[in-house]
Amino acid sequence: QWKVGDKCSAIWSEDGCIYPATIASIDFKRETCVVVYTGYGNREEQNLSDLLSPICE
């Protein structure tokens, strides 16, 4: 189960590419979260089910 502060990978809606991110907040009722893309600072809402394991850098 994901928690705030977890590192993950998420698909950015603008280009469909996968980027490393950190979970900033979680809404368990809606099963969504807000991620912050590492190195970019962009925030975006994602479905918890769409999150991927962190990418090894």
Rank of each mutant, 00 (worst) to 15 (best):
D50A: 11
S53H: 08
A21S: 02
E31A: 13
D27I: 10
N42K: 10
R30E: 08
S9W: 15
I26K: 00
G39T: 09
K3D: 13
V34S: 03
Q46H: 13
Y40K: 12
C33Q: 00
C33T: 00
N42C: 13
P20M: 12
G41L: 07
E45S: 06
C17I: 06
D6G: 00
K3I: 13
V36A: 02
S13K: 13
W2Y: 06
W2H: 13
W2M: 13
K29H: 11
K3E: 14
A10V: 13
L52G: 01
T32S: 04
I55L: 14
Y19R: 01
I23C: 01
L52M: 12
L52T: 01
C56A: 14
Y37P: 00
K7P: 10
R30H: 08
K7C: 12
E45P: 05
T22S: 04
G16N: 06
L48F: 05
V4A: 01
C56E: 15
D50N: 06
V36Q: 09
T38C: 13
C8P: 00
G39C: 13
I23S: 04
Y40R: 15
Q1I: 03
N47Y: 13
N42A: 13
G5E: 08
S9M: 15
E57D: 13
Q1R: 14
Y40D: 01
C56F: 14
E31R: 14
I18W: 07
E31N: 14
L51Q: 04
T38H: 09
F28I: 11
Y37M: 01
G41H: 07
S53M: 13
Q46S: 03
D27N: 08
V35K: 01
T22P: 01
A10W: 09
K3N: 11
Q1N: 13
S53N: 09
Y19Q: 02
K7F: 11
A10E: 04
Y19W: 04
I11N: 01
T22H: 03
G41N: 10
K7R: 12
Q46G: 05
K3H: 13
E57K: 06
C8L: 00
A21N: 00
D6W: 11
G16E: 02
Q46A: 04
S49Q: 09
E31C: 10
D6H: 00
D15R: 10
Y19K: 01
V35I: 12
R43Y: 13
D15K: 09
W12M: 03
E44Y: 06
A10P: 01
A10I: 08
I18A: 06
I23T: 02
R43G: 03
P54Y: 09
I55F: 13
E14H: 13
E14F: 15
Q46F: 08
D6Y: 08
Q46M: 08
C17E: 13
K29G: 09
G5A: 04
S53R: 13
V36H: 01
S53K: 11
E44S: 06
S25Y: 09
S13Q: 03
D50E: 08
D15G: 06
F28A: 11
Y40F: 14
G5D: 09
V35Q: 02
I11A: 05
